[in-house]
Computed example of a mutant assay.
Amino acid sequence: MTFSRGTVEEIAAVLAASGLILRGGFGFGDEEAAPAGPSGAPAKSMLLVGQAGAAPWPHFQRWLRQQARDIANPLDTWSREVIGAVAQGCGARAISPSDRPYLPFQQWAMRAERLKPSPLGILMHPQYGLWHAYRGALLFEDEISQSEAHEAIHLCDTCVAKPCLKSCPVDAYSEQGFAYESCLGHVRGPRGGSCRSGGCLDRNACPFGVAYRYPAEVQAFHMASFARAAA
């Protein structure tokens, strides 16, 4: 059986009601170690699910206000619920980037959308810049009929100034990688107020995809999650 384009469009329409979008997909080769599909047999194909900009935020906030208790990782929980419901409706298995053992979501994303990492490690999208995310994936034991992604323009190659490597007060990002402890100490410290309230200064310095930049409250939410998770 091959999943039709109509079915994929129906899945996209259901996800759109929660501010989520399909982020491409691909079929697993016969020689690949594919993750398990809904029955436990190796999956034959996948569709990545994610967001562009902060479109899911009002849907997530509305859901969060309805919860009767505090949730340790609310955005992950909400994403699992939404994508899990879609999976049930289309006979797929839902998986999440936070599943253990970790699955190679970044490699899958690069394969599905032909993207490359920015100096910050976030994949650079030709339209969304750094303001996008992957929230999960749908695994199928059938083939999916879809067009192959074209090689994306890597905007970082066109950027000479690289402001994303010059805006952090503790130089957390460099060609040597991410200075995790320096970043964490600054975010938690007395001089990290602007990062806590408005997000990563290096990420905000990127000139691409600014129309999709997360609002300050969304960035503050993610920064608070980073500080807590690292505790």
Rank of each mutant, 00 (worst) to 15 (best):
M1I: 06
G6R: 10
G6P: 06
T7G: 15
E10F: 06
A13H: 06
A13S: 13
G19Y: 04
L20G: 01
L20D: 02
I21T: 11
L22E: 11
R23K: 11
G25V: 02
E31K: 13
A33G: 13
P35V: 08
P35Q: 13
S39E: 14
A41W: 09
K44R: 15
S45Q: 06
M46I: 11
M46K: 04
L48M: 07
Q51C: 07
G53W: 00
P58M: 03
H59S: 08
F60M: 05
R62F: 00
R62M: 00
R65M: 03
Q67Y: 03
N73F: 03
S79Q: 06
R80V: 03
R80Q: 08
A85G: 14
V86C: 04
V86R: 00
V86K: 00
Q88H: 09
G91D: 04
A92R: 00
I95S: 02
D99T: 00
D99Q: 03
F105R: 08
M110A: 07
A112I: 05
S118T: 12
S118V: 11
L120Q: 13
G121H: 13
G129S: 07
H132I: 07
R135F: 00
G136A: 10
L138Y: 12
D142W: 11
S145E: 15
S145I: 09
A149V: 03
A152Q: 09
H154K: 06
P163F: 11
C164T: 08
L165D: 13
S167T: 15
S167I: 06
S174G: 15
E175H: 10
E175N: 09
Q176C: 07
A179D: 15
A179V: 07
E181G: 09
E181V: 10
C183D: 09
C183V: 07
V187M: 14
V187C: 14
R188W: 04
G189Y: 09
P190T: 02
G192C: 08
G198T: 03
G199H: 01
R203T: 00
R203E: 04
R203C: 06
N204M: 03
G209C: 06
V210K: 14
E217F: 04
M223A: 06
A224N: 10
A227C: 04
R228S: 14
A231K: 12
